[in-house]
């Protein structure tokens, strides 16, 4: 599929979508959003890229293999429960710093967990989309 309009639009839309995804991730704890939706929006950005530029370009833009994102996401999520163990709480008990930040609110381990979810969702969605799209090309 070749469309100049779509290609040009994609060029401007993808960075915006990724930024928005990141924004959704960070504000998730207090406002609508979160790692899951953020991950989906980010993955949608790459899906758009697959449609307008093809899988090869999309893969290049993602830089690392989708599987790495899955591994990264799962590991971050798993590790985010460990600080609680260090202060003898149950695994996954949330811990927060006292400082407050705009948009994010207080920093804490649940945010780290959400970041894990974010990367994992990007990983699995792109994995499936890329695999299906590659099969189409053959």
């Amino acid at each position: 599929m070749y469309s100049v309009i779509l290609k040009t639009a994609t060029k401007y839309l993808t960075p915006l979508m990724l930024l928005f995804a990141f924004f959704l991730l960070l504000r998730g704890h207090n406002e609508p959003g979160g790692g899951f939706v953020g991950g989906l929006v980010a993955a949608a950005a790459y899906a758009l890229m697959v449609i307008s530029y093809g899988v090869k370009t999309a893969r290049k833009e993602l830089k690392y293999a989708p599987l790495s994102f899955i591994i990264l996401g799962l590991s971050i999520a798993l590790i985010s429960g460990i600080p609680a163990l260090l202060v003898s709480e149950t695994y996954f008990t949330g811990l927060w710093t006292e400082m407050k930040f705009p948009v994010i609110g207080k920093l804490g381990t649940p945010l780290i967990f959400d970041i894990g979810v974010f990367f994992l969702v990007i990983g699995i969605t792109t994995k499936i989309i890329f695999t299906l799209a590659e099969e189409d090309q053959e």
């Binding site: 998730g28 704890h29 406002e31 959003g33 790692g35 899951f36 609110g105 649940p110 967990f113």
Partner: peptide
């Protein structure tokens, strides 16, 4: 420490 109940439950 979160206002978004859905997200707080999830994470």
């Amino acid at each position: 420490k979160g206002k978004n109940v859905v997200n707080v439950i999830l994470v």
